[in-house]
């Protein structure tokens, strides 16, 4: 292996009926780097993300994760490998508490019989608070329903969830969409600190000004194709802007 790649994708193709959403897309994610994925609406960013997160299967092409070829059949499978996705719509259950939200689908149990068992509330609350404290988020209690949190706090909890489950690759799909300016700054800071902790991430946004400061590499897509894949050092924000247009 030439470099330490966490994920490599080769010749991905995806059709939705007669429409081709992804055309021969190949790209690599080196470990502990932040990849900025940009492109106009309909460029194929979301389709690509759905494939990498396990929600959709590509019609052709190969994906390698930590040097091994993988076939993702579900998001759950991706999550168990350490690929965690953060969606723009905020994948949480508003009526449920912070602690319960962090552990949805991966609940801590006192014991289990065939995959079912009683929840260990004490341990879940404790670990939830630890995960939140690690990110220096100030939330009142693990019992607080998520519906009472602000948009930024919610994305914070989602990132805490990803960190808690030791994800190796974080996919962030337009995470700044519903955030205030201050919350956006806080989130960007958080993502760039992930890289220093050895976690790679793919950051999708249509706002180049969010991505540019924190990305190590920038990948540009248009009409389902990858049209540029450059190290930030070799380019400028104007150059990328022109490519997207």
């Amino acid at each position: 292996m030439t470099a330490n790649y966490i994920m490599r994708a080769r010749n991905l193709e995806k059709w939705y009926g007669p429409v081709q959403a992804i055309r021969e897309v190949s790209f690599d994610v080196p470990g502990s780097q932040v990849i900025g994925l940009v492109g106009d609406n309909g460029a194929g960013k979301s389709s690509l993300i759905k494939i990498l997160s396990g929600a959709h299967r590509p019609d052709s092409g190969d994906i390698e994760f930590e040097g091994k070829p993988i076939q993702l059949r579900s998001t759950k499978e991706a999550m168990s490998l350490g690929i965690e996705t953060i969606y723009q719509y905020n994948a949480m259950i508003p009526q449920m508490s912070i602690a319960r939200n962090i552990f949805i689908g991966r609940e801590l149990l006192k014991f289990n019989i065939g995959g079912y068992g009683p929840l260990d509330f004490e341990k879940m609350n404790e670990e939830a608070m630890d995960a939140i404290a690690d990110l220096k988020l100030h939330l009142r209690s693990p019992d607080t329903p998520v519906s009472e949190l602000s948009g930024g706090e919610r994305q914070g909890v989602v990132i805490a969830r990803a960190m808690h489950f030791k994800s190796k690759l974080l996919i962030l799909d337009e995470p700044t969409n519903h955030l205030s300016l201050k919350e956006t700054d806080r989130l960007l800071e958080l993502v760039s600190s992930l890289g220093k902790q050895g976690i790679a991430s793919i950051f999708i946004s249509h706002n180049l000004h969010h991505i540019y400061p924190i990305a190590d590499r920038i990948v540009v897509m248009a009409r389902g194709k990858k049209i540029a894949d450059v190290s930030k050092a070799d380019t400028t924000i104007t150059e990328i802007s022109n490519l997207i247009m």
Binding site: A91, E107, L119
Partner: peptide
């Protein structure tokens, strides 16, 4: 009551009804 309020299966039920897309994305 026990299954609904105290087990993971109950958690999945509340999640499925509360926000189906999130529940699905989280692997339920």
């Amino acid at each position: 009551g026990y299954v609904l309020h105290r087990t993971n299966a109950g958690n999945w039920l509340f999640a499925t009804g509360g926000q189906p897309q999130a529940a699905k994305d989280l692997g339920i």
